[in-house]
Design a protein around this nucleic acid. Sequence first.
DNA 1: CCCTTACTTGAACATTTGTTCAAATAGTTT
DNA 2: AAACTATTTGAACAAATGTTCAAGTAAGGG
Lengths: 193, 193
Amino acid sequence: MYEPNTLLDKATELFWQKGYQATSMRDIQQALDLRPGSLYSRFQGKSELFEKVIVHYAEQILARLEQTAQSEDGFEATGDMFRQELIKPAELRYQRQCLLLNALAQSSKLEDRAAQALEHAMAKMLQGFIGLAAALQEKSLISGEVAPAQVGQWLQIQFVGLRNAAYFANDDEQVMYFIDKLIIDLQSEWPAS
Amino acid sequence: MYEPNTLLDKATELFWQKGYQATSMRDIQQALDLRPGSLYSRFQGKSELFEKVIVHYAEQILARLEQTAQSEDGFEATGDMFRQELIKPAELRYQRQCLLLNALAQSSKLEDRAAQALEHAMAKMLQGFIGLAAALQEKSLISGEVAPAQVGQWLQIQFVGLRNAAYFANDDEQVMYFIDKLIIDLQSEWPAS
DNA sequence: CCCTTACTTGAACATTTGTTCAAATAGTTT
DNA sequence: AAACTATTTGAACAAATGTTCAAGTAAGGG
């Protein structure tokens, strides 16, 4: 009998790599050397398992965002966070993508409960970015005239866009260049809303 | 017998709405009131159909990018292009996402031929953005010291990020705000590569 | 009117998938 | 060791999906 976390970690890895639909219960069973019943004795079904995976994944992202917000050197920490999240060795290439966004692309096949968890996780992630934006303003690093919600959403836009770029990037320097640009633009002018 | 374009347009719509895997051949047959054989007499299978859809879709995006690049007023045209692509009424919400990116999230289930078409389409799209960047530099609207490839890729990053934001946005003004920010940042400082 | 060609039909097949369940096994308590 | 509970096993089911194909229908030329 596996530790619950081992099981969830492996499931997360598979869903992350291949997406929700493309990952079959048999894939998970095989990866963990489990028989169907053993899996279904711990989770009601694929939907619930995926829901748990989403929550687990979102918690990790959120923790990293909060940790970044609490850091001393705001820009440095923000840049580091982006770099840590986006620069991965080739064998972990799949982690440059976002499990939540991948899931979103297949949300039409998600059952209600998983779809709801996904929406909730996305909202949580946005809250994390808004918290980071507020922290940067607190330190007077960026203009206080813009609503933190705006800056936070902008950060998330950059995050999403960069994930796709990182997925296709050949070398790390390309990605780091755009992270530098991001830090500059954080400090550049913000339109009047 | 349907016009080939009617058929491809409807298939595009379905794939765009629901993604590759979630769209079954039966869905397409039903939407066009066709029987299996009729569909298979025009396309070898789902893979080839999707390949045609991808090429068709990429051509449209590329055409819009090239048209934008040729426009007189560079920034205005660029902003308009983003607005046209991202601001859609609720019933066309699915068009705020990118068919290519959706497909990418499920690429593990794509057959070689479709995966190759997808990769090719993505590269084409990037070329379109780079062309737009070069055109903006030609008009001396942005710094000529940065390689067009960098600016082009940056534009694509913004495009991808904004698509996701637009998909979740409640009102159009939110999206337009970030497009304004984008135009500002185009003109702000670029890091030394 | 017939013959040939092209297209359509609708049933069927093979495979994959999520899921269930009675029987067997392992683990724990008395 | 026996009795009881919890977990695992492996076969099986039902539904969905991509695809095929022989038979039927329509179209057009001679």
